[in-house]
C-alpha cells in the first residue's frame, strides 16, 4: 500500500512565486504544502491509491464479473410478476417512480431480454461499455419496479451501486489488456470502495438504532424465532435457544460489517472478506429464507480479482488445477 506520487498533484501546489508575496498566510500555506498535515496526507494517500494506473485485465475481470452477476439476476427472476401487482398497490419512491404505476408484462420481459443482450456484449467484448450501460439500466429499472410494493428492497441494491461506478469505466480493447493506465486502474477500486462503504453502513445503522445491544442481547434469538419460512428453520430455532451461539452469530455479523473497509483495503484479506460475507448471507438464507445472493456474488466479483497479485490474472488460477492434475 505504498502511496503513489500523483502526477496531477502539482496542480494543487502553490505556484512558484505565489508564496513570495511576503504575506504570512501565503508563507503558512506554502509551508503546509511542503509539510501537509496528517489529514491532508491521508486524503492524498487515498486519492493516489484510487487514481494510480492499473492493468487493463483487472478492470476487464471486475467489469465482466459484475455484468455476469447482473445477467444472472436478470435471468433468475420472473420479472413479469411485477405486472400482477395492481396499479393501486404500486408504492414507494424510486428513480423510476415517474413511470406509469402498471407496466405490462411484455415490456418487463423485453427489458430483461435487452439487459441480458447487454451482458452478452460485455462478455463478447463488443461495445462492452455500451453493453454494460444497457444491462445495468435494464436491471436497475426492473429492480426498482420489483421493489415498488411499499417495502424497501435491499436484495439488489449493492449490485446496482457497484455497477453504477462501473458505468463510467472504459474497458480495454482487445490486445490492450496488459496496459496500465489511470482509466483502467480506478474503476475496480471505486467498486471496492462502494462495496466497503455499503457493508460498513449496514453495520453502522445497527449500532445507530440499537447500540451494541444488537449483538450483546437476545436480539438475534428473537430474529431467528420470528423469521419466516426458511430452508433450515429447525436449526434456526435451535441456535435461537442457545443464547451464546445466537450472540456469537450477531457479534460476528456486526463485526464483519463494521470492519468491511479494513478487510477490503488490504489486498490479501479481500478474498477472505468475500468468503466471510458468503458465509454470513448463506446463514441468513438458511435461517431466515432471505435471498442476498446478489450481495455474495457482487462481493466476490469485485473482491476476488482485486485480491490477486497485481500481475496475476484471474484466469491464471486455472493453472493451479492444471499443475495438480498433471501426472
Amino acid at each position: 500500500m505504498t502511496p503513489t506520487p500523483t502526477p496531477g498533484r502539482a496542480a494543487t501546489s502553490t505556484p512558484p512565486g505565489a508564496a513570495a508575496t511576503g504575506t504570512e498566510p501565503a508563507t503558512a500555506a506554502a509551508a503546509q504544502v511542503r509539510h501537509p498535515g496528517r489529514v491532508t496526507r491521508f486524503v492524498r494517500g487515498i486519492d493516489a491509491r484510487l487514481t494510480a494506473p492499473g492493468p487493463g485485465f483487472r478492470l476487464l475481470e471486475v467489469h465482466t464479473l459484475v455484468a455476469l452477476v447482473i445477467g444472472l439476476r436478470l435471468v433468475a427472476r420472473d420479472w413479469s410478476a411485477v405486472a400482477d401487482r395492481p396499479a393501486a398497490l404500486t408504492d414507494g419512491l424510486t428513480f423510476v417512480s415517474w413511470l406509469p404505476p402498471h407496466v405490462p408484462d411484455r415490456v418487463l420481459v423485453a427489458l430483461a431480454v435487452v439487459g441480458v443482450a447487454g451482458v452478452g456484449l460485455v462478455v463478447a467484448r463488443r461495445r462492452a461499455q455500451l453493453g454494460f450501460v444497457v444491462a445495468w439500466t435494464a436491471y436497475a429499472v426492473l429492480c426498482a419496479l420489483w421493489g415498488s410494493s411499499g417495502k424497501v428492497m435491499h436484495n439488489d441494491v449493492l449490485t446496482v451501486w457497484v455497477g453504477f461506478v462501473l458505468l463510467f469505466a472504459r474497458v480495454p480493447q482487445r490486445g490492450r489488456d496488459d496496459e496500465r493506465t489511470v482509466a483502467f486502474g480506478w474503476p475496480p477500486r471505486a467498486a471496492l470502495t462502494v462495496l466497503a462503504v455499503v457493508y460498513w453502513l449496514t453495520g453502522v445503522q445497527k449500532v445507530r438504532h440499537s447500540g451494541f445491544d444488537w449483538a450483546f442481547s437476545d436480539n438475534m434469538s428473537w430474529i431467528l424465532r420470528q423469521g419466516g419460512q426458511a430452508p433450515a428453520t429447525g436449526l434456526a430455532h435451535w441456535v435461537a435457544d442457545h443464547g451464546l451461539l445466537a450472540g456469537a452469530l450477531a457479534t460476528g455479523a456486526l463485526l464483519l460489517e463494521l470492519t468491511a473497509p479494513v478487510w477490503l483495503v488490504w489486498r490479501r484479506t479481500r478474498a477472505l472478506f468475500a468468503l466471510a460475507v458468503a458465509v454470513m448471507h448463506t446463514s441468513i438464507w438458511l435461517f431466515l429464507g432471505l435471498d442476498y445472493s446478489a450481495w455474495v456474488l457482487t462481493a466476490a466479483a469485485v473482491a476476488v480479482p482485486m485480491s490477486l497479485a497485481p500481475t496475476r490474472r484471474l484466469g491464471d488460477m486455472r493453472r493451479f488445477g492444471t499443475i495438480s492434475t498433471a501426472p
Binding site: I46, G185, R267
Partner: peptide, 8 residues
C-alpha cells in the same frame, strides 16, 4: 484501495 504493486 489500490493494489500494492500497482501503487508502488
Amino acid at each position: 484501495m489500490g493494489d500494492t504493486g500497482a501503487t508502488s
